[in-house]
Design a protein around this nucleic acid. Structure first.
Length: 541
DNA sequence: TATGGCTGCCC
DNA sequence: ATTCTGC
DNA sequence: GCAGAATGGGCAGCCATA
């Protein structure tokens, strides 16, 4: 009950500081057990990030359970659901006045999520959820639904939860962030903070930490400017706190190919090895041959790298690699599984831990030196790195990376530490669109959340030269400003051909320039093609 | 037994 | 993944 | 500059149903 009230109060204010204040006040008022649960809930999850359990409850199960719990007609339910396009709001409206509320504390909710997780099959899950929702207040039901969808939509996520923890227990924010990076469990972080034990969180083998991320930049010049600016500031400032350019007159940057695979963090000792994904999920079972060979390292290591599809000295595509994702088989029996498998290799680009020693606060230059010194098992490679001294050099490396069929470049500051979970100013990525395409909008759909009342989601088509028909090839909204979306909404409302609930066919008279990174065969759209990363570049007028 | 919907998780 | 927006 | 929100394609696995 306290949880939902705090959630409502946070949703009601747009000011971040006020949200944090409200949350901190709540955190300091509850015991350890509730604190561990509530902090995770406020990040929009039922279970901590490193927890392997999944609920297998999505929109479909939720909507069916809501309908059943409120005992209303399908037509009435659809009317309410369509008016929101938001599962949480729908839950409140549907349940309001139609349930018999019983006491339901935050520990009860956690037990409920655990039971729900253990049930097998959508039918059983829908049944259990429906029974529970029928015994909650509309507000409680709304927050159960919000957590199940992973979207609180109260303008607060993990970043502000960290701030609230720091504020509630009067500890430095940096220490909270660091502990959370190392633990991958904000609940445990909060309890450590409360008991003044944050220093107990340390980098250790087989506990995954968040990945360091790169900021996107559109051109080599833009990236170079970042480094020059940092260097200028460091030169002027007395004893700059950043390790960015100490001792450098002319900036030097490290440039590597950006591989199109999956980000992977490998932990290995002589007796055990584990592989984790970017979101800290254990994916060891999907790449058993990599994991097995990883035990051949003579040191204990944590490597950061990319798993890519690779056969006979040639890099394959991400599309090939995807066939290896989502595998459940933990089988190490290579004879059984490998024949149909796409072969993969691990390309290492960073070393975070070496024989009991954390390298997070070691400069990239030195981490790279240590990485180069490792003796690699088969199926392991080291990403080659070159130094660049100008925007032009970065640009020509970019061209070479593309010739090697890689996505683009990573550009890194050689002096930088490894900052887990940060998309800071030390790593940049340079990717460019493959091409742009002029397409015609044939359908428009109402958005969700704050885009609930605008037509923000566009289906677009290309013309088949032989038949003259317009064939859909993709969807996008990304790239338009709110003002442009508002303008297009007006236009499409006036030019609707047929309405189908939240979706409408529209007169094909708006042409968009759409950028994309690749194009491939697909059964999703009737053109038989689909775009990768479609985004709108411009409205043609 | 075959197919398709749903979910989670990669990018 | 990409992009925009408010703080 | 950061954090949050809203949105893309596509795969495997699991289950329900035809």
């Amino acid at each position: 009950l306290g949880f939902t009230n705090v959630g409502q109060a946070i949703a009601a204010t747009p000011a971040k500081l006020e949200k944090v204040r409200l949350l901190a006040e709540y955190f300091s008022s509850i015991d350890d057990e509730r604190l561990a649960i509530a902090t995770v809930y406020f990040t929009g999850h039922a279970f901590p990030q490193t927890d392997l359990r999944t609920l297998q409850v999505g929109g479909s199960v939720i909507y069916r359970a809501l309908g059943g719990a409120a005992k209303i007609s399908d037509a009435e339910f659809r009317r309410i659901a369509h008016s929101h396009g938001d599962a949480g709001k729908t839950a409140f409206d549907v349940l309001d006045g139609r349930t018999v509320s019983e006491p339901f504390g935050i520990t009860d909710s956690y037990k409920f999520f655990e039971q729900l997780q253990k049930l097998r099959g959508p039918v059983a899950k829908k049944e259990a959820l429906q029974n529970r929702l029928a015994q909650l207040s509309a507000r409680e039901g709304q927050y159960v639904v919000k957590i199940l969808t992973g979207d609180l939509r109260i303008g607060l996520r993990e970043g502000l939860v960290e701030e609230a923890i720091a504020r509630a227990f009067n500890v430095p924010l940096d220490e909270v962030k660091e502990a959370n990076m190392l633990l991958g469990d904000i609940g445990r972080t909060a309890v450590l903070a409360k008991n003044n034990e944050l220093e107990r969180a340390e980098l250790s083998l087989f506990r995954p930490i968040k990945c360091m991320l790169a900021s996107p930049e559109p051109t080599a010049e833009a990236i170079w400017k970042r480094f020059v600016d940092v260097a200028a500031v460091a030169d002027r400032g007395p004893a700059s706190a950043t390790p960015a350019t100490t001792g450098e007159k002319m900036p030097v940057v490290y440039v590597e190919d950006k591989f199109d695979g999956i980000r992977a963090q490998l932990h290995a000792s002589r007796t055990r090895s584990e592989i984790f994904s970017r979101d800290l999920k254990r994916i060891t079972g999907q790449f058993p041959e990599i994991a097995e060979q990883a035990r051949q390292f003579s040191e204990e290591v944590i490597l950061d790298g990319e798993i890519i599809a690779f056969a006979e000295d040639r890099k394959l595509t991400f599309f090939d690699l995807q066939k290896r994702l989502g595998r459940k088989t933990d089988a190490l029996d290579l004879f059984e599984t490998s024949s149909a498998d796409v072969p993969v290799i691990f390309v290492a680009f960073d070393l975070l831990f070496l024989d009991d020693r954390s390298l997070l606060r070691t400069a990239l230059r030195e981490r790279r030196d240590l990485l180069r010194g490792l003796k690699l098992p088969p199926k392991f490679q080291i990403a080659s790195v070159v130094a660049a001294h100008s925007a032009n050099e970065i640009e020509s490396e970019f061209k070479r990376a593309r010739l090697r069929l890689n996505e683009g470049l990573m550009v890194k500051n050689p002096q930088s530490f490894y900052s887990p979970g940060r998309r800071g100013m030390f790593w940049f990525k340079l990717k460019k669109e493959l091409a742009t395409l002029d397409v015609v909008v044939v359908g428009a759909e109402l958005g969700h959340g704050k885009r609930n009342h605008v037509l923000s989601d566009y289906t677009f088509a290309v013309r088949d030269e032989s038949s003259g028909e317009l064939l859909p090839i993709g969807k996008a909204y990304s790239g338009l400003t709110d003002a442009e979306i508002a303008e297009l909404t007006e236009h499409f409302k006036d030019n609707t051909l047929v309405e189908h609930g939240r979706y409408r066919e529209v007169k094909p008279d708006i042409v968009l320039e759409v950028a994309f990174n690749s194009i491939q065969p697909s059964t999703r759209h009737s053109s038989g093609l689909a775009l990768r990363f479609p985004r709108i570049k411009a409205i043609r007028r």
